[in-house]
Design a protein around this nucleic acid. Structure first.
Length: 156
DNA sequence: GCCAACGTTGGC
DNA sequence: GCCAACGTTGGC
């Protein structure tokens, strides 16, 4: 019996990497996460097949832009070892990696962005981590929240 | 282990 | 570009 499907929200600045970029390349490694809480979710809990809400941060407007799914479970984020990479971490050690990433695959795009402003107005989402701990870049989403958010938009 | 200084995220 | 929230660092 397969493990129960879990759900996540992952943030990206669309000026760096947007849902349209993911649509074009179909799949990407989610590199550059340098926060321990976010790392722990990716490394310890994300499983192949889990659903991902692709969130645009620092955007006009910020909000949920599309859906993706986890296709490869955590492995070391090699950008941490590359001095030329913007996400280089001089303290990390290839023999004992600090940072991990997963691979995610494009599923579909929101007809129009589900803005943060709109999410805040929905009673059933009051306890969503996104609305309570704004800065966490990888965070769990409950099945109820997932279902409710999917019902808020048409999807291409 | 405390906490001030500092850096980063991300909404606006 | 501003700045609040909050994570990290390092002196003690």
């Amino acid at each position: 019996m397969p493990a129960k499907k879990q759900y996540w929200l992952m943030k990206s600045e669309p000026s760096v990497f947007s849902i349209d970029d993911l649509k074009v390349c179909k799949m990407t490694c989610w590199d550059g996460v340098r926060n321990y809480q976010a790392r722990n979710f990716m490394r310890d809990e994300m499983k192949r097949g889990d659903g991902v809400l692709f969130y645009h941060s620092n955007a006009q407007p910020s909000g949920i832009a599309g859906l993706a799914k986890v296709v490869q479970e955590a492995y070391p984020d090699y950008t941490a070892f590359d001095p030329k990479d913007v996400h280089y971490d001089p303290k990390s050690n290839p023999g004992k990696p600090t940072w991990y990433m997963v691979d995610v695959k494009y599923i579909k795009t929101c007809h129009s962005i589900i803005s943060l402003e709109r999410l805040r107005k929905i009673a059933g989402l009051k306890n969503m981590l996104l609305l309570r701990h704004g800065r966490l870049s990888v965070q769990p989403v409950t099945p109820e929240e997932w279902k409710m958010i999917l019902s808020l938009s048409e999807w291409d």
